[in-house]
Simulated scan of single mutants.
Amino acid sequence: MGAGSWIIVVVLISLLAMAAVAAFVGWTSAKDTDVPASGYVAMAIGVIFSLAVGVGLMALVFYSDRKGYDEPPMLIPPADTIEVSGVSDGPVKPQQTQELS
């Protein structure tokens, strides 16, 4: 690994350590605090809602991939147009012929 990769690893590990310290300090500073039942209900509803959104979005990702909705867009011209080098000239009009007398 190069120097840049090591810097990224060190930064990420230090961020993880800081998050762990913040969680520990927050957890231990609230020793004598009681959470009411409504707090637990609100937390449970939030967790269930977050999981439902995550599962729903992942289901849409898999559905979209399997149905081909993730393919790159392609221009499909209407049947009544002529395409010349990628530029459509519009509707095809019948050519008028003149009779020579």
Rank of each mutant, 00 (worst) to 15 (best):
K93C: 06
I82V: 15
T81P: 02
S101W: 09
F62R: 01
V25R: 05
S38H: 13
E71D: 09
S88L: 01
L57C: 08
S14N: 08
Q96V: 15
P78N: 13
P77K: 06
G26F: 02
I82Q: 15
E83P: 00
A59L: 13
Q95K: 10
G86Q: 05
M58R: 03
V9G: 02
V87W: 06
T81I: 12
G2S: 14
L75R: 10
R66L: 02
G86P: 00
M1G: 15
P72H: 07
E71W: 12
I8Y: 01
D65S: 12
S88K: 00
D34S: 08
S5C: 04
S5H: 10
A79T: 15
S38D: 09
Q98S: 11
V87F: 04
M43Q: 14
G54H: 06
G86E: 03
K67T: 01
E99L: 15
V11R: 08
L12W: 00
A42W: 09
A52F: 12
V53Q: 05
A30I: 06
G54A: 14
S5F: 02
P77Y: 04
E83W: 10
P91N: 06
F62V: 15
S38T: 10
Y63L: 04
D70H: 05
S64T: 01
G90E: 10
Q95E: 15
L12A: 04
T33M: 09
Y40L: 02
G2Y: 00
W6I: 05
A23K: 12
S50Q: 06
G56R: 03
E99D: 13
L12V: 07
E83A: 02
P94Q: 11
A22Y: 14
E83K: 08
V53W: 02
M1Y: 14
I8W: 04
V21Q: 00
V21D: 04
A44I: 07
S64P: 05
A3R: 14
D70A: 07
E99Q: 15
L60K: 03
M58A: 12
I45Y: 03
V84W: 11
F49Y: 10
P72R: 12
W6P: 02
S101G: 13
S85N: 15
V61H: 07
V55T: 03
K31G: 02
Q95A: 15
S38N: 09
V87T: 15
S29G: 10
I48S: 05
A3N: 14
S88W: 02
D70Y: 05
D70L: 10
K31E: 02
G39M: 13
I76K: 05
L75F: 03
V47I: 14
P73K: 03
G4Q: 01
S64H: 11
P36K: 00
S64E: 01
Q95C: 06
M18E: 12
A44L: 09
G4L: 03
A19G: 13
P91G: 10
Y40P: 07
W6C: 14
M18T: 08
A20R: 09
L60N: 08
A3T: 11
S5W: 00
L12I: 05
M43C: 11
V21A: 08
D80V: 13
L15F: 06
V10T: 15
F62K: 07
T81Y: 12
S29H: 05
T33W: 03
G54S: 14
L100S: 05
A52N: 03
T33V: 13
G68E: 07
L16H: 06
S29D: 11
R66D: 06
M58E: 08
